[in-house]
């Protein structure tokens, strides 16, 4: 079986930058990824990537991809990694389609939207329930909707919906909204937004499409008639497939300043790691570091 120098898992900002660096070091490597761009492809506006005063997420990702494709890199797209482990001196990667082996691996698999795990959520996904306000908000013009969450992503979704929907319930499980004060004030001042604190969502209801939600507020159970649900309760790392590696309480893979994990030969970078700042530019920098660390590790092994 073919043994690569390196396998990079994920092709968001971190994975793509790692790939560019690995290609320039002429490493023999493979990229395995579900998609190109990751969460950056879903960002609305990016105003803090140096060199671009304003660029949309998809435009920035298109530039990343163009840079990536400049090299003859072997990319397995639409392929999800099920397991990554170290066996003897080799790293083993299992996907639905295949098994790959390498001397080193870089985990750059990012994060995904957290789910509510309540009845009706799966059934009504894309039938009124969505995790991407940027994508789907325009379909709810003049409708009554609920945004679930209380942090910046919930505020961002609410701000987008204020221009579109008739009425917005912002449903927050804690006693007060979090997030940036500037965004919070805009939401609090808007007459279309009703903020429900201390409120838990119990069930999504409907027939073919969402028609309501059941909520619990101050120990009282109520039903709200709504046509749209925007789930914005944060993100979780895509780290479940890495076995026997050290993670923090949030499931993020622990790395040191050289992007080494607790398993020699396995490196990690970007939002899947415990590096605190989750930013596109930080993920890119971490991706570069991880590739250079993997390269250095390999040269020391020889």
């Amino acid at each position: 079986m073919k043994v690569y120098d390196l396998i990079i898992i994920g092709a968001g900002p971190a994975g793509i930058t790692a790939s560019v660096y690995a290609a320039r070091k002429k490493m023999d490597f493979l990229v395995v990824t579900k998609d190109i761009g990751g969460q950056a492809a879903l960002s609305g506006e990016v105003e803090n990537y140096t060199g671009y005063q304003f660029i949309s997420g998809p435009e920035l990702v298109a530039k990343f991809e163009e840079h990536l494709r400049k090299f003859a890199i072997l990319i397995k797209e639409n392929e999800e990694v099920l397991e990554l482990k170290k066996e003897d001196d080799l790293v083993l990667i299992k996907t639905k389609e295949d098994v790959y082996t390498a001397k080193t691996a870089i985990v750059a698999s990012g994060k995904r939207s957290k789910e509510l795990n309540i009845p009706g959520e799966k059934e009504f996904k894309n039938r009124g329930l969505t995790y991407c306000a940027t994508c789907d908000a325009p379909l709810f013009s003049e409708k009554t909707v609920a945004v679930i969450g209380g942090g910046n992503s919930a505020l961002d979704a609410t701000l987008q919906l204020m221009k579109i929907a008739k009425e917005i319930y912002l449903i927050n499980i804690t006693s007060a909204l979090g997030g940036d004060p500037i965004m919070r004030e805009k939401v609090e001042k808007n007459s279309r937004v009703k903020i429900l604190n201390n409120t838990e969502v119990l069930e999504i209801m409907g027939d073919r499409f969402v028609s309501g939600i059941r909520i619990k507020k101050d120990n009282k159970i109520e039903k709200l008639a709504i046509q749209g649900v925007f789930v914005e309760i944060g993100l979780i790392p895509n780290s479940e497939f890495v076995k026997d590696i050290e993670k923090n309480e949030f499931g993020e893979i622990k790395v040191n300043c050289k992007n080494q994990t607790s398993i020699p030969a396995i490196f990690a970078c970007g939002d899947v790691t415990d590096v605190v700042e989750k930013q596109i530019i930080v993920a890119c920098g971490e991706g570069a570091k991880a590739a250079l660390s993997a390269f250095r590790y390999l040269s020391q092994q020889r």
Partner: peptide, 13 residues
């Protein structure tokens, strides 16, 4: 599509 949807833009591209 919608004008703001990133996947729509990627699809059209």
């Amino acid at each position: 599509s919608t004008p703001t949807c990133p996947w729509c833009q990627r699809t059209k591209q």
